[in-house]
Design a protein around this nucleic acid. Structure first.
Lengths: 193, 193
DNA sequence: GACTCCCTAGGACACTTGTCCTAAATTCAG
DNA sequence: CTGAATTTAGGACAAGTGTCCTAGGGAGTC
C-alpha cells in the first residue's frame, strides 16, 4: 500500500486527538508532536485549525459511509441494525474512556458556537437516515425516522453514562436491552415477504 | 436578602460559563468580565482555576440535593420520577442550546483527564441513588439501581440529540415516551399498599 | 484619628496559543 | 546534472493563558 502522505498523517492524528482530548484542548503543538513534524509546517497543508477540523469531519463522514456500506452485506435489515447496536461493544474501551466521537464533538462545537457544528451533526444525520431505511424495510415506514432518532439517542445515553461511571456492565446490559427492544417492535409487517 | 458576596458571584458566573462554553474554553478574563472585577482579584478568593471548578461542582451538588428534596413533596414515587423526567421540559431551551450541564461537564473532564472528573460524576450518582429509591418504593427493589441508571442514560441521550439537531420535537416526544415507559414498568407491587 | 485587616486593581511573569515568514532541504521533470 | 516546484524546519509575532505580587482603598475596631 502507498505510504500515507503528511496530510493524511495530520488528519489521522488530529482525528485521534480531537476525540481523546477534545478539539479546543488539542493544540498544534500536540498534533505536531504526534505526527513528528514541525509546527510551522502545518500551514502548507492546512490554512487554519478550523481547516483541520473540516478535514477531520470529512474524514469521519467518509469512514461512516464506508462502515454503513459494509453493514449492508447483511441482507436482513434487522441484522443491519444489530450491527449498529453492537458497534458500542466493538468500541467498548474507547467509549468508556472518551465517550462517543460523534456526540462529544458535536456537543463541544455547540458550546464553542463553532461554524462546523452543523457539519458535525450531519454525521448523526448519516446514521439516522441509514437506520431509518432499515426500519422502513422492517415495515415501520411512517415512524422510521423517529425510531432511528430514538435509537441514536439511546446509544448516546449509553455512551455518556458508561464513560461517566466507567461502567462496562451498564454498557453491555443496555446494548442487550436495545436488541430486545428492536425485536419487540411492532407492528412487524415487512415490505416484502 | 443579603447581597451576594464576590465569591458567590464568581461561582455563579463561572457556573454559567462552564455550562455554556465549557470549562477549558472559559478563561479567567471571561469570568472577570462577567462578574465585573479585575483579573488579579481572583486569587484572593480561589487559589487556582481548578479551585473554582471544585466550588462550581460543590454548588451544583448542593443545588441538586435541594431540587431532589423539593421533588419529595410529591408523596407518590411515580410522581417524583415524573418530576425528574419533566426537568428536561422545564430546561428545554438551555438543553437544546448547551446540552445537559452534568453530562457535558463530566464528558469534558473525562477528555481532559481532570482530577475533578469523578466528583462531577458524583452528581450523576446523586440522581441515580435518588431515582433508585423511588423505583424501590415502587416495588422494583432488586433492579432499582439499574432502572435509575437506564433512566439517566435515556435522559442523557435526549439531551445530546436535542442539542445536536436543535430538535424540540424530539425532546418532547422522548419525554412523553419516558413517561409511558415508567407507567408500563412491571411488576408493580408497591412496598406498602 | 490611628490601626488593623480584608478586599480590590492593575500590572508583571513565564508560557502557550494560532498564525505567518523565510530559507533550506527535498523531490521530481527535462 | 540542472532547474523548478514542492515540502520542510525553525523562528518571529501578537495575543491570550493561568498565576503571582504589590500597592492602595475601604470598612471596622480601639
Amino acid at each position: 500500500m502507498p505510504k500515507p502522505t503528511t496530510r493524511d498523517m495530520i488528519e489521522e492524528k488530529a482525528d485521534d486527538l480531537f476525540y481523546e482530548t477534545g478539539f479546543e484542548a488539542t493544540s498544534f503543538a500536540d498534533i505536531a508532536k504526534a505526527v513528528g513534524i514541525s509546527r510551522g509546517n502545518f500551514y502548507h497543508h492546512f490554512k487554519s485549525k478550523d481547516d483541520i477540523l473540516d478535514a477531520v469531519i470529512d474524514r469521519r463522514m467518509a469512514k461512516t459511509k464506508a462502515m454503513l456500506t459494509t453493514w449492508e452485506e447483511d441482507a436482513a435489515p434487522r441484522d443491519r441494525i444489530v450491527s449498529f447496536i453492537r458497534l458500542m461493544i466493538a468500541n467498548k474501551a474507547k467509549i468508556m474512556a472518551y465517550g462517543c466521537p460523534v456526540g462529544t464533538l458535536t456537543t463541544e462545537l455547540t458550546k464553542l458556537d463553532h461554524d462546523a457544528h452543523s457539519r458535525a451533526a450531519d454525521i448523526f444525520g448519516l446514521f439516522q437516515d441509514w437506520l431509518a431505511q432499515q426500519f422502513a424495510a422492517l415495515g415501520h415506514g411512517a415512524r422510521a425516522q423517529k425510531l432511528a432518532l430514538h435509537l441514536l439517542g439511546r446509544s448516546q445515553g449509553v455512551a455518556v453514562m458508561a464513560s461517566a461511571f466507567k461502567d462496562e456492565e451498564m454498557l453491555t446490559s443496555e446494548v442487550a436491552a436495545l436488541e430486545t427492544w428492536l425485536d419487540q417492535l411492532e407492528p412487524l409487517s415487512p415490505v416484502k415477504g
